[in-house]
Design a protein around this nucleic acid. Structure first.
Lengths: 228, 228
DNA sequence: ACCTGAACACCGTTCAAGT
DNA sequence: ACCTGAACACCGTTCAAGT
């Protein structure tokens, strides 16, 4: 454990079982939870498993293939949307559950936003989400509205993940805003400073964002219903 | 140009003027426009300028410092928000102008979302944007609402940029969706497929997203006004 | 003050050879 | 079938030495 290098040697001579894809993906998910998807390397993953990088290639594939497997696992942890609730409450719950799973695995949100339906576990989420919105009155606009809702959530989580990996940057943001706290000739910046520094946490802002997206979709529903 | 390596030699012996920060940043912006912020390397930037990587360090700083300078330049290209328009039209125009500048410089949107007020050129945008929303009736919620609007735009642009660098991934998304086109037991996926493949372009979806965010903020305004 | 050129400690990926 | 170990072509960053 401590002295990985000296523990090395042919797997077979150390009575280790043969490697397989399942072990590799589990280790990759663990590394993602600990360090973030973009902050472990192929060599590190191999090191965790006491094998050579080429072994990971042999059983799973290149970096993108391993990442796709990790993203699918993590999305698979999100509870399905509750079809018995009104559409608004159902989405609110879904987007919160999504945040819990994604924030536990930094970097996955960005890949999810990027790949969307290519993630197998995402297919059921899309299907049910779009159906619920269509039934609620959005009709042909349901796919676009679904995308607006899921994007507002997933993209915000992705940027939260990114910020967490740069504490120095957060410090800089806070210092910059602090310069304008109480400023009278730049009142907009002043109120942004007190909002960010004193009142709003990341979770509050996430909920606010989701609620405004839901408001936007609801307003659109009203317009569509009035016109039909 | 073609044979960079052989054209090398001490700058002074080739009658080249001394390097300076301005030239470096201009070259970095050009490389960003051509390849995207994440797709040029320090060594490439130095190569463009016929100098050594250490020279860039000497005049500007490490990679993050060069990037910060590029982001500031690009944001500086965006026309200021028009205070004479009603808030909704003013924001709609701002967010469209923002898209034009950012999409011309792939990868900048992500950095902008990440760093926010640390980008000097962003300070005026924030100040005026928040002020306009506060005056329009959002009061203390103006900073949060401003963030919702700017995020919905900038984060969507960032993910569009990312997708553009992976044409193979877009192909995969299209193929996956195509499997469900016309499916009768997964109607949600079927309508997502026709929406993405037949009806909605990236620009349409951008406008739809911005409009739904504006709807959401407007709805919140109505609620706040009614309660006061 | 500005530039040179090499070195350092990495990275993902590939591949021939071993068992 | 599975693993080994080295090699390849990169990367950002540092630094002593030159002019």
């Amino acid at each position: 454990m401590k002295d990985k290098k000296s523990a090395r040697g042919p797997r077979i001579l150390r009575d280790l079982p043969p490697m397989d894809a399942e072990q590799i993906v589990i280790a990759a998910v663990r590394l993602t939870r600990q360090h973030g998807l973009d902050y472990w390397t192929f060599r590190q993953l191999a090191g965790e498993l006491d094998c050579w990088p080429a072994v990971v290639y042999h059983h799973v594939g290149d970096r993108d293939v391993v990442i796709a497997a990790v993203v699918d696992r993590v999305v698979g942890m999100v509870p399905a949307i509750d079809g018995s609730l009104p559409w608004r409450e159902a989405f609110r719950a879904l987007l919160w559950n999504l945040r819990v799973a994604l924030r536990m695995h930094p970097g996955v949100a960005r890949w999810l936003a990027l790949t969307g339906p290519v993630v197998p576990a995402m297919l059921a989420v899309i299907d049910r989400g779009v159906s619920i919105l269509a039934r609620a009155g959005l009709g042909a606009e349901a796919p676009a509205a679904y995308s607006v809702l899921i994007n507002s959530a997933v993209l915000l989580i992705a940027i939260e993940d990114d910020r967490d990996t740069r504490p120095f940057l957060c410090e800089e943001i806070a210092q910059t805003l602090n310069l304008y706290r109480g400023s009278t000739d730049r009142r907009g910046l002043a109120s942004m400073a007190t909002a960010c520094l004193d009142h709003w946490g990341a979770e509050d802002f996430y909920r606010y964002t989701v609620d405004r997206s839901l408001d936007g979709v609801e307003a659109r529903m009203t317009v569509l219903r009035r016109n039909s």
